[in-house]
Design a protein around this nucleic acid. Sequence first.
DNA 1: GGCCAGGACACCA
DNA 2: TGGTGTCATGGC
Length: 222
Amino acid sequence: MTKKTPLTIYRLYQLLLEQLGPLGTWPGDSKEEIIVGSFLVQNTRWENVERSLINLKQHLSGDFKSLKDVEQDTFQDLIRPSGFYRNKSKALQRFFNWLSTYQFDYDRILQEHDQDLRSQLLAQFGVGEETADVLLLYVFEQPIFVADKYAQKLFSQLTGKPFSNYTDLKRVFPSLDAFSLEEAQEFHILIDEFGKRYFTPRTDFSQSFLSDYTVSEIHLKN
DNA sequence: GGCCAGGACACCA
DNA sequence: TGGTGTCATGGC
């Protein structure tokens, strides 16, 4: 058993970027499209989400803001390829109604809620911890960490201690202080890309370019 | 043909 | 607070 090389979180980001990147940020031509994608991707492959996004883009002529005005049955048909279409249609149309009360002015939402924006997001139907953080990171542009399943698996491997749920890992990362916004945004994309490649039945972590690295307790805060 | 994917909610103790 | 069942499509 060879000695493993310790990593800081930022160095981990750099390694992921070197090996997998650059991958940029969350896909979408507008904040509204990013929001739709973040709901539709819940427990769903991105390829299925893309079909729904194409359907919606065509039906809405590219203007996702008018999504809340689409008749419910029609809307469900449009997003059917990404599954859970009853819950997701309800969640999205309600969320867009909420956004419309702010005229989709994201800066205003940020200012009005400031410290409690995360709990405001969590109070919306269909927004759990991961989706709330994705919205904070890519829509409200806060450099925060998304502790999703792939991140839990990755840091379980790197630290040797199991992170089995969102809050377990999340409380280790209150913020990503060493990261710029763009870096924080790409960090999550890179972690998910890593997960798709190296947490599969065929290829596991030990076969990855990170297998000889470790993240120790003192480095967990960046 | 069963398993699972960039989760969240309802219900229960 | 934490554990379990349910929601649904599409790829393998």
